[in-house]
Design a protein around this nucleic acid. Structure first.
Length: 648
RNA sequence: GCUGCUGUAGCUCAGUGGUAGAGCACUCCCUUGGUAAGGGAGAGGUCGGUGGUUCAAUCCCACUCAGCAGCACCA
């Protein structure tokens, strides 16, 4: 028998017979470690304790104190335990897959009857029983044919399909949790009792397509969250409650920003407060674009299908377009139109007016373009995913050799704006050529290289999204992370060689000949609607002063101060500060509470003392303490605060 | 679009086969109160829509619309 040498994290080495399992190694170190061990990391790979070690290796024995592998194993085993529980309760349910995800796991089941919330309680109880049984976990490698036959015999068609899709050189591993068997590549805990019985919770049931394919069977997916102990679980559930409190749909109502209604699904009725945020942001973006060398245009909403046919949208995007057919009697001529889902074809029309010279390039054409897309009903989500929205869109018409410089410029432009808006950190995803694409490989090489090197030159790392590019070119996506860790794609930059070709855009180069420009599609905010949703949620409604729709409320403490309050409001408004008056017959407690709930950043309260001193009592949102300022002082302070970051 | 759930007053939610209720918000009155809800009175609803069952439907059934969660799709 071979001897092998294992190196431990502390540098110690021990010799063992080849083929020894990690469990045996752990027990050899100490009996208690043998019991506490949950898995082993062998040569950097995570394995369960039954893993036989054939050659010299580095090894670390993991226990529940090693949070990362422990969570992975606990969640993974819970997926199996849940599947077993479901099959013990309803033996005819078919099992499929159940991976670990953020904070927990899910498992997809095929069952005719829907799982009810009561069912979740039953399953949870059964899972706890299984955990308390402390059933051992064991594994075997099976021959492919045997595994397929097994699942044919037990009536598990999804498992058969899974095995058939496992590459031929990969072993087929079977695991048993007690008597219950599942196909799995592991690793797993030693026995079910190692799962903390009070650290998990089944959250909800939802539909999910088999293999993520909407043409395949729809299964029922049960989601669970799991942690190493009760306290961590509780902290997670509390975090979810906090997240729900900052939901932009809830805050939008509380702050009276907007509403939506049945007659216009996926479209927003902006109220005065919300529209103030929108226009303030738009004014800011317009100033930035002017500084950034953009020209602003505006193009039609309703456009003849002929243009969409030429651009390729009619072919590739029709499902998502609002088609407008006008009754012939009412129409000057019979025509089928569509509301524009994107601005690019219209921008090419503007570009195409008159001859363009190479001296005109790069031409940066911006539009706050209102677009309508017929999004699937299930995709709609508050103001974040809507059917009518406005992009801060622009198209940069340039030569191929300008792509890199323009990309670099854009990334700088965007990062400045994100910083102004309070997002110091963002990540970049780079999506390269998809399988189905237009344009030659040569052109793709060129544009991918240009995007990549420009991003690197700007000093940013990016994550590769292989095959996720648009059919017409590669793209960069700029992703913001909000205050509770959720990612949102906002900005984008896409290289496009195809549309200029389809819509016959050209310029006259130095050689006197016609050449095709390249188009860079780009947006910073993405859409105002989504971006405002992100701003609301990440700030929990406490927008920076310059963006707050109601910046100041001047509240009278006694009615004898009413006149003075009006004077304060007038002084603030004269300086462009958005100030409102609250002279209602209510106590100051009541007014403070109401405006605090309404997320007004500054409340200025005035009673007789302030009238006499010509001062105000200042209360800032989120602070318990108040301070006193003279009228002149507070007006100049707030005037400065009300300025946008680019106007300081 | 698919699966499941939900739809009652402006908001949050009770409730019943015999055409409805609370709290907050709103209006009016009292109260002039010093930093997160002062007191009283009043008004407010074809119970998402359409059709069906029934002597009678907000409640039961069918269809439909919208919302929510997830999937698929995406700014």
């Amino acid at each position: 028998m071979f001897q092998i040498s294992l190196t431990f994290p502390d540098g110690n080495k021990r010799d063992y017979a080849a083929g020894i399992t990690a469990a045996e190694v752990a027990s050899d170190i100490s009996t208690s470690l043998g019991k506490k061990a949950i898995s082993a990391t062998v040569n950097g790979a995570h394995h369960d304790l039954q893993w036989p070690i054939a050659a010299d290796a580095t090894i670390a024995i993991n226990t529940m104190k090693d949070a990362e592998p422990a969570l992975e194993l606990v969640r993974h085993d819970l997926a199996h335990i849940m599947a077993r529980a479901v099959q013990e309760i309803w033996p005819d349910v078919k099992v499929t897959i159940g991976p670990v995800i953020n904070n927990g796991w899910y498992y997809d089941f095929d069952r005719k009857e829907p799982f009810t919330p009561e069912d979740l309680g039953l399953i949870e109880k059964k899972m706890k029983d299984i955990i308390n049984q402390r059933d051992g976990v064991r594994t075997e490698v099976w021959e492919r044919d045997r595994a397929i036959q097994h699942y044919k015999d037990t009536g598990e068609p999804f498992k058969v399909e899974l095995i058939e899709s496992i590459p031929g050189d990969e072993p087929i591993r079977m695991y048993w949790h007690g008597e219950w068997q599942d196909l799995c590549r592991g690793p797993h805990l030693q026995h079910t009792g190692q799962v903390p019985a009070d650290g998990f919770k089944l959250m909800h049931v939802a539909g999910a397509y088999w293999r993520g394919d909407s043409s395949r069977e729809q299964l029922q997916r049960i989601y669970g969250v799991a942690f190493l102990n009760k306290e961590q679980l509780k902290a997670h559930l509390t975090m979810l409650e906090e997240a729900a409190k900052r939901d932009h749909r809830k805050l939008g109502r509380e702050m009276d920003l907007f509403h939506m209604q049945e007659e216009a699904p996926g479209q927003i009725f902006w109220h005065p407060n919300g529209w103030k945020i929108y226009t303030t942001l738009q004014d800011y973006m317009r100033r930035q674009q002017e500084r950034g060398g953009y020209v602003e245009v505006n193009t039609p909403q309703v456009v003849d299908r002929k243009l969409w046919e030429a651009s390729g949208h009619w072919d590739k995007y029709q499902e998502n377009m609002f088609i407008v057919e006008v009754d012939e009697e009412h129409a000057r001529e019979k025509a089928v139109n569509a509301l524009k889902p994107m601005n690019c074809p219209c921008h090419v029309q503007v570009y195409n007016q008159g001859m363009k010279s190479y001296r005109d390039l790069p031409l940066r054409m911006a539009e706050f373009g209102s677009c309508n897309r017929y999004e699937p009903s299930g995709a709609l989500h508050g103001i974040m995913r809507v059917r009518g929205f406005t992009q801060d869109d622009a198209h940069i018409f340039c030569r191929e050799d300008q792509i890199e410089v323009e990309t670099k410029k854009f990334i700088e432009f965007l990062s400045n704006i994100y910083r102004d808006l309070g997002f110091e950190n963002f990540s970049i995803k780079f999506s390269d050529r998809p399988e189905q694409r237009a344009g030659s490989d040569e052109v793709w090489d060129k544009s991918e290289n240009a995007l990549r090197s420009a991003t690197e030159a700007a000093g940013y790392d990016f994550e590769l999204n292989p095959g996720e590019g648009a059919f017409y070119g590669p793209k960069l996506e700029f992703v913001l992370t909000d205050a509770i860790g959720r990612d949102w794609q906002c900005g984008t930059l896409q290289v496009d060689f195809v549309l200029p070709e389809r819509l016959d855009a050209h310029y006259i180069a130095e050689d006197g000949q016609k050449h095709r420009p390249v188009m860079l599609h780009r947006a910073v905010l993405g859409s105002f609607e989504r971006f405002i949703g992100i701003l609301i949620e990440s700030s929990a409604g406490r927008l920076p002063f310059w963006l707050a729709p109601r910046q100041v409320v001047v509240a009278a403490i006694v009615s004898d101060a009413n006149e003075y309050c009006q004077e304060v409001v007038a002084a603030l408004r004269a300086q462009g500060v958005r100030a409102e008056l609250d002279l209602r017959n209510e106590k100051i407690n009541y007014k403070v509470r109401e405006h605090s709930v309404g997320k007004v950043p500054v409340i200025l309260a005035c009673g007789m003392r302030e009238v006499e001193e010509r001062s105000v009592s200042v209360r800032r949102l989120g602070e318990k303490q108040t301070s006193t300022s003279s009228l002149e002082e507070i007006v100049s302070t707030l005037t400065l605060e009300a300025k946008a970051p680019d106007q300081l």
